[in-house]
Amino acid sequence: MNFASDNTVGASAPVLQAIVEANAGAMAAYGNDEITRRVRARFAEIFERDVDVFFATTGTAANALALSSAVPPYGLCICHREAHVIDDECGAPEFFMHGAKLTGLPGVGAKLKADDVAAYVKSLPRAVKQMPPKALSISQVSEGGLVYDLDELAALGAVCREHGLAFHMDGARFANALVALGCTPAEMTWKRGVDILSFGATKNGGLMAEAIVVFRTDLAEALDYRSKRAGQIISKARLIAAQFEGYFADDHWLANARHANRMAKALSEGLARLPGVRLAWPTQANEVFPIIPHALDRALKAAGILYNPWTELSLPEGEHVGEGEVLVRLVASWATREEDVHRLLEIASSGVSRHAAE
């Protein structure tokens, strides 16, 4: 049973079928095809306004290109200190920003607070020796599995407007956050001040389906050229765009995300009922972060269950991982089966019972 990531499962049937259908015959290359035009129009419908859309094959490429459009080489991009853009992308954003810098701030559950961002910006000296802040990047869902609510997004958007920062959202798990909030894509993005979005589909049923959705026209001006230089203008672009047709059809993307979130909730509630287990942060989307005894960790691993240890940097005040404990992350996906969740909980319960009897 693999709960290591939502990247470990394949693509969903509607996405694969859309690729098969798009594969027939010949079409114009490099995004000049009818499928790509339809998908761009669909993005505009979903976000309730005109948007510029650029496709990418990976989330790293989408994030790096998005930030490169917003931050000049002498600029600074603010993010959480555990954000994917600063911690998991091998310096790609800084590379594509041609030397601009990412700086990470602390925050519980890998979330940033508007007041903390504002205070940091105000603390920076206004001198040529200091790189000026040009953008804010947040992860929605955060690296602690938490979801920014609409008020939090609006507050961050207001800070960006006040200080002239472009507001970027890393939406690798965009759909999971969206269904958790029960809002519209527009309400979770540009209506709260987001300027540019890395829209992820790969974790939620796509094969390699990422998009940069731009709400501020000036940020889109050079993205065609930046995408070309990054090798992200694909000759058979229709096969990238087609994934989104299958993804969006009949709200398949939302159904996938709801299922993943529901599986994570069931897993979270079951683990939290076990003696000696507690959650580092609430389960708000499709990731679960329990603090478990080493004995339970050994029992789960002995049963062949895959998951990952996690960092303790963003624990709430007063919480800590004690001696004999470990903080881990388990991720549910659109393909997670209920029987696998139940089986994991059975193994966990048995492991806890054996440990108590020893």
Rank of each mutant, 00 (worst) to 15 (best):
A135R: 01
V147Y: 06
L344G: 09
P93L: 05
L124Q: 15
D6L: 00
G246V: 05
S123R: 09
A175K: 02
G322S: 14
F3N: 04
H259I: 00
T58G: 08
H259Q: 13
D52R: 15
L16D: 14
N286T: 01
A220Y: 02
A356C: 03
S69K: 04
S68P: 05
A70F: 04
M208I: 04
P14K: 08
G59N: 11
L306K: 14
R38H: 07
V71E: 06
P133M: 13
F47C: 06
R192S: 14
H355Y: 03
I196C: 04
S353L: 02
H80Q: 11
G99R: 09
L344N: 09
V15K: 03
G351W: 12
P185C: 12
A26V: 11
L267M: 13
N2S: 10
G109H: 09
E312D: 12
D33A: 00
Y74R: 09
V147M: 03
R226T: 03
G200Q: 09
G304H: 02
A249K: 03
Y148H: 11
F248H: 02
F95H: 13
E45T: 11
G75R: 01
L306I: 15
K228L: 08
A41Q: 14
Y30M: 06
F55I: 07
K129M: 14
P73G: 02
I212R: 02
E143G: 06
K301Q: 10
A83V: 02
R258K: 14
A211K: 08
A266G: 05
D251A: 10
W190C: 04
E323I: 03
F174S: 01
D195I: 11
E21I: 00
N32E: 09
L65Y: 06
H259Y: 10
G25T: 06
E89F: 07
T189Q: 02
A242C: 09
N32Q: 14
A255T: 15
A230M: 07
G107W: 12
A70Y: 06
E48Y: 06
S5H: 13
S139R: 05
F47G: 03
L165M: 00
R173M: 05
T57R: 15
G157K: 09
V214H: 01
L344F: 14
L219P: 02
K129R: 13
F47T: 12
I46F: 03
E82R: 03
S350F: 04
A100T: 03
A119P: 01
A201S: 13
K236R: 11
K191R: 15
V321L: 12
S123F: 08
D87S: 15
F54G: 00
F174M: 07
W310T: 08
C90R: 13
A180Q: 07
A348L: 11
W281E: 03
A22V: 04
D250S: 10
I234N: 10
P93A: 08
Q232H: 10
L345A: 09
G318C: 01
A302L: 03
E346C: 04
A28L: 14
G109A: 06
A257C: 05
A70N: 05
N256D: 08
E162C: 04
T36W: 09
R38V: 00
I35T: 15
C77L: 11
E245Q: 13
P106Y: 02
R126N: 10
P185N: 12
D6H: 13
A158V: 02
E287T: 13
N261K: 06
G25I: 01
V121R: 01
S137G: 04
A348Q: 08
Q17D: 15
R226N: 14
I347Y: 11
A175E: 11
F3D: 00
Y148A: 00
W334I: 05
A24L: 09
